[in-house]
Design a protein around this nucleic acid. Structure first.
Length: 355
DNA sequence: AGTGGCTCCTGGCGGC
DNA sequence: TGCCGCCAGGAGCCAC
């Protein structure tokens, strides 16, 4: 599951190959990948050079320059599309019709008009969600990519995404602030201080785990790194956010940064399907302390790790290292003492049961 | 306002 | 062996 470290890994890998390349054309094989149509995306992306790669939370941002030789755009991409549709994926044209219940895509999805946007630079924003993979110069694939960027010099960027939750947007830079409005600070940014964390925690009844995963509070933290950070901070995931004291907040702040940095250093966690744009797996999953280790012994104290559900998400913790003192969130009362026992063989339930 | 629960989507797994 | 149904999860949306 791509979270901040995985998206950062993708960004760093793409930095070595994507900037300077020209996007010749954009092909949508799956209309549901974007709320914008293929022609609309083409108008915003094709004929432009990649000028930069950034990340905001779990979003990957590709900066594109103003269109080059605008006069030629109309004919060239169409020809490229025709050749690529067969070369890339025979099933490309069999894209499903747009779902009637097209999921709304973004916090504040700006609908860019192609005509208005085609003159200046643009940004493309990609969210990998659960299983999205950005692959540079990919080999043959089992399934057609959900979208393809044809690049010059001749190569391709593919977006593979088994569960089809990933999304693509394109708009002028002026709309970026609106798009990301409401998203919390970057963990490695200046705004994410211990003071900020304390202020945000204060008075909240939601469980700590839910707080950490709320993108409005902190950008980029998902299920894996929330569980790992809470273990590192020795805080129970069901503690009420508002019950966290100053020292605990400092510990949580440090643990978050350390955990995310460790994820980046290990080039992400490849638990389900994460690979970087070169198809390389990360290694953070090899040093996980609690995530998906239900029933295994804690690496610190040997206690059998447990699993519960917080905010509908599988949550893994050590009952000894992460004690419950300090006040629980209201909804957690009924869960006390009822964490699910280890479930052998279950995908996300963790490993084999402890004897 | 804040919070929990449902929804999307698919592969993998358990159970019959 | 083969089929059915459940489960995982990021984030938008809705109800309470």
């Amino acid at each position: 599951m791509p979270e901040l470290p995985e998206v950062e890994t993708v960004r760093r890998r793409l930095l070595t190959c994507l900037p300077g390349l020209l996007v010749r054309d954009v092909l949508l094989n799956d209309a549901t990948v974007s709320e914008q149509s293929e022609p609309e995306l083409r108008a915003l992306l094709a004929g432009r050079r990649v000028t930069g790669l950034r990340r905001r939370g779990k979003y990957l941002i590709v900066d594109l320059g103003a269109p080059q030789r605008p006069g030629r755009q109309a004919e060239e991409p169409a020809a490229a599309a025709a050749s690529a549709a067969t070369a890339v994926s025979p099933a490309a044209s069999a894209a499903p019709a747009a779902s009637p219940a097209l999921p709304a895509a973004s916090p504040a999805a700006p609908s860019a008009s192609p005509a208005a946007a085609s003159a200046g630079p643009t940004v493309a924003v990609i969210h990998l969600r659960m299983t999205g993979q950005v692959l540079f110069r990919p080999g043959p694939a089992e399934r057609p990519p959900r979208f393809v960027w044809l690049l010059e010099p001749r190569t391709e960027l593919h977006f593979q995404d088994v569960r089809r939750f990933g999304r693509l947007w394109a708009f002028p830079p002026a709309r970026e602030a609106e798009f990301f409005a409401g998203m919390g600070p970057e963990p490695f940014g200046e705004d994410f201080t211990v003071e900020y964390l304390r202020r945000e925690l204060e008075g909240r009844r939601a469980p700590l785990k839910s707080f950490l995963m709320d993108q409005r509070r902190i950008a980029g933290v998902g299920n894996i790194y929330a569980d790992e950070a809470l273990f590192r901070a020795r805080l129970h995931p069901l503690r009420a956010s508002g019950s966290i004291g100053p020292r605990e907040a400092r510990r949580l702040h440090a643990a978050l940064l350390e955990t995310l940095q460790a994820g980046i250093d290990h080039e992400g966690s490849s638990i389900e399907s994460f690979v970087d744009p070169a198809g390389v797996r990360g290694s953070f999953q090899e040093i996980l302390s609690v995530y998906q280790r239900t029933g295994e012994p804690c690496r610190v104290c040997g206690t059998t790790l447990r699993r519960t559900v917080v905010g509908g998400r599988g949550t893994h913790f050590c009952p000894h290292c992460q004690p419950r003192r300090g006040g629980m969130s209201p909804g957690s009362r009924r869960l006390q003492g009822s964490e699910t026992p280890p479930r052998p063989g279950k995908t996300a339930g963790g490993g084999p049961p402890a004897v």
